[in-house]
Amino acid sequence: MKVLVVHNRYRSEQPSGENNVVDAEVALLAAGGVQVSLFERRSDDIASMSLPQKAFVPLQVPWNRSARAALAARLQVERPDVVHVHNTFPLLSPSVLAACADARVPVVATLHNYGMVCPPGTLYRDGRICTDCVGHTPVPAVKHGCYRSSAVATVPMAANLTLNRSRWHSGVTRFFCISDAQRRLLVDAGMPASRMTVKHNFVTDPGVRRTGAGSHVLFLGRLTEEKGVPLLMAAWERLGGSLGLPLVIAGTGPLSDSVAAWAASRSDVSYVGLQDKASCQALTADAAAVVAPSAWLEAFGLVVVEAMAAGVPTVAPSHGAFTELISDGVTGQLYSPGSAPALADALRDVLADADRNQKMGDAARQRYDEDFTPAVGFRRLVEGYEAAIAAA
């Protein structure tokens, strides 16, 4: 099987789970004997463009003729059996679907977020979950400047969504949704249910697992409001050191300075900043629990599965993909979304009994072995490709 992966890489200055997923899948396919190649653009390249070129980038978000032509040339030379599209923003555009249609190559597309129904792909605005654009023309997104808090910056994304909705629906043979929660929402918004299947992201076995009770509670991720950092801080204040374990916060983002100042004022909080992969794995394996307090509807939740692989239970809100990733009271603890008291109670519960905590960690690892290993990920990828090829 020959697969061409199409992806616009996000900026390297901020960690991207989507970039990591694409890299992991490409490596997995190659290791499994699939002939896989990459057609990429990099958002980092925008910084080195001339001012006229930079000004032209937003105009190409809905349709990029040069990207279409370049992909068409690649398809003519390589003649893949299937094209796997990931992100097309901002340097590729849905014009890549037209190139595939011209070459009569079936397309599989992974939906990493809610970009098919929400211009910034987050379903989050002004500190709350927002579905104003779901199933409608995305005028509210422009009105509220949902991308980078700018109406002007949001216009190209809203235009992209509006102008290319039917092309996505007709030009993709099979969609990979990364959770059932995401699939249900998108189908309800009008996407073609018969061509949408759930393929969870996989996680490579970290090679390290928790061996004791754990020495801290861990938050690992971008320090933003939507990731629930302010909620976590409020919940931790309510606990007042009663857990007997410190909170370790690893990551970076817009709230880095406020988190660092808050951590410096407390003896039970440690802010360690951005960590490399090995350090993140070590921090996870040494955790009594991992907390993922996202305020938005996570389409997946990679940090939860990474904790599963290390045999560590997770605390998360009962919305989005978390309800299918976490078995409440079995592999982790769910709480009422947006409630600091509920989050504090869930943290108490998951740590109250060491034996129960250990059993939850063991159950989490078992769930990982069943559903999220590279072997499972490879099988589901190939099954999806074969189904798309057969349908075409």
Rank of each mutant, 00 (worst) to 15 (best):
P80C: 01
I249H: 06
S95F: 06
V34Q: 03
A364F: 07
F176I: 09
N357I: 05
D188M: 06
F372K: 03
V259I: 05
L245Y: 04
L218R: 03
D205Y: 02
L232M: 08
R367D: 13
S279N: 06
S279F: 00
G273D: 13
T137D: 11
A24R: 07
V155F: 04
A292D: 09
A151T: 12
V77W: 02
Y271H: 12
V22G: 14
V382A: 08
A30F: 01
S294M: 04
L38Q: 12
E306R: 03
R195E: 05
V315R: 01
E13N: 14
V155G: 09
R65S: 15
P58R: 00
G221E: 05
A282G: 14
P317R: 00
T154W: 00
A392M: 04
Y124A: 12
D286F: 05
G214M: 02
V203N: 04
V22C: 11
A344N: 07
R68K: 11
A287G: 10
K199H: 08
Q281C: 10
C280Q: 10
W236C: 13
S48Y: 03
V77G: 12
E324V: 07
G121C: 09
E306A: 06
R183G: 08
F176H: 14
I129T: 13
A299R: 00
V85S: 05
S256D: 14
A299I: 08
G329Y: 00
L223Q: 06
M196E: 06
L111K: 05
V152C: 10
K359Q: 15
D355V: 13
G384Y: 00
V229F: 01
I178Y: 02
P119W: 00
Q281D: 15
C177R: 01
P140D: 08
V5K: 00
A73R: 08
K2L: 05
R210D: 07
A159L: 13
S170C: 11
T252I: 01
A141Q: 05
R128A: 15
P119G: 10
N201P: 12
G212P: 08
V269N: 01
R148L: 15
D205G: 07
Y124E: 10
C146P: 09
N160F: 13
W262F: 13
Q76H: 09
Y335K: 04
A70W: 03
L232S: 10
Y147R: 04
Q358C: 09
L218E: 10
C130M: 04
Y147F: 12
V142M: 01
P254S: 09
A316E: 12
A103D: 13
G17D: 07
V198H: 01
S215I: 07
V330H: 04
P374R: 01
T373D: 08
V34D: 11
D126G: 13
R9Y: 12
V303S: 08
P374H: 04
V312I: 10
T122K: 01
L231I: 12
V155M: 07
A387Q: 14
L161Q: 14
V57G: 06
R42T: 15
S215H: 09
V83Y: 05
L255S: 10
Y271K: 03
K143F: 13
A193K: 05
E78M: 08
Q76S: 14
D132H: 06
A235H: 06
G190M: 03
H136K: 14
C118T: 10
G228M: 03
D81F: 02
A390W: 02
E298P: 11
V85F: 01
P206F: 01
Y271S: 11
K359N: 15
A30P: 06
